[in-house]
């Protein structure tokens, strides 16, 4: 029908498929897959198949993308709150924090999970928010305090990792919070 447009769309399809396979984070991969479906439906349009194009746009781009994202959220996304307390914001401290968070993220990705690191600043008691996060890392001058909530199956591995990878001059302590859905809501 329209040769240059068709070729352009085809190239986009191949590029998006390649990116989808090669991306490290699974959530981005799901989004790229949605974009792939959208371009795919445009390609169907150039082949005079608007029926198939509508079906592809609705099912490939909307339904399957949302289902994939929900599945990822249910099983693999670990929300990490990274609380930065007041300390002298020297370059060395910033660099050390950066190294810590980056290596922690890499550890999560190796385990097959999706770390979602959110730098935050919780003034009041953070434990009241324990339906929002899976891990809360409080990084102060002397120690790293980690609270975990709702990821009981992952806790031994995190502990093991922290034992081997913690910065030398910091103490690391680890607390598990009770499940929000359970009867008791207290710290264990």
């Amino acid at each position: 029908m329209n040769a240059p447009l068709e070729i352009l769309l085809m190239i986009c399809l191949i590029a998006l498929a390649f990116i989808t396979v090669q991306t490290q984070k699974l959530r981005r991969s799901a989004i790229y897959l949605g974009a792939f479906s959208l371009i795919c439906s445009f390609t169907y349009l150039t082949y005079n198949a608007p029926d198939v194009a509508i079906a592809e746009a609705v099912i490939g781009c909307t339904l399957s993308t949302i289902l994939l994202l929900i599945a990822l959220k249910k099983y693999h996304v670990i929300t990490i709150f990274y609380v930065e307390t007041e300390l002298g914001e020297s370059a060395a401290v910033k660099k050390e924090r950066k190294v810590f968070t980056t290596s922690f993220e890499h550890f999560m990705m190796e385990k097959g999970f999706e770390p979602q690191m959110i730098p935050t600043h919780i003034e009041e008691n953070p434990l009241g928010h324990n339906d929002c996060f899976n891990l809360l890392i409080e990084h102060t001058q002397e120690e790293i305090i980690i609270y975990s909530s709702g990821i009981r199956y992952l806790e031994p591995e995190i502990k093991e990792y922290l034992e081997s990878h913690k910065p030398e001059h910091l103490d690391v302590s680890f607390f598990m919070l009770a499940e929000q859905s359970g009867d008791d809501n207290e710290e264990q």
Partner: peptide, 24 residues
């Protein structure tokens, strides 16, 4: 899409999928 599926683009399946997107 459902109602005009008879004589234009679309049809029952596509329209139904769109309406189920509304439920999402």
């Amino acid at each position: 899409v459902v109602i005009n599926g008879a004589d234009s683009v679309g049809g029952g399946f596509q329209g139904g999928a769109v309406i189920s997107a509304a439920f999402i």
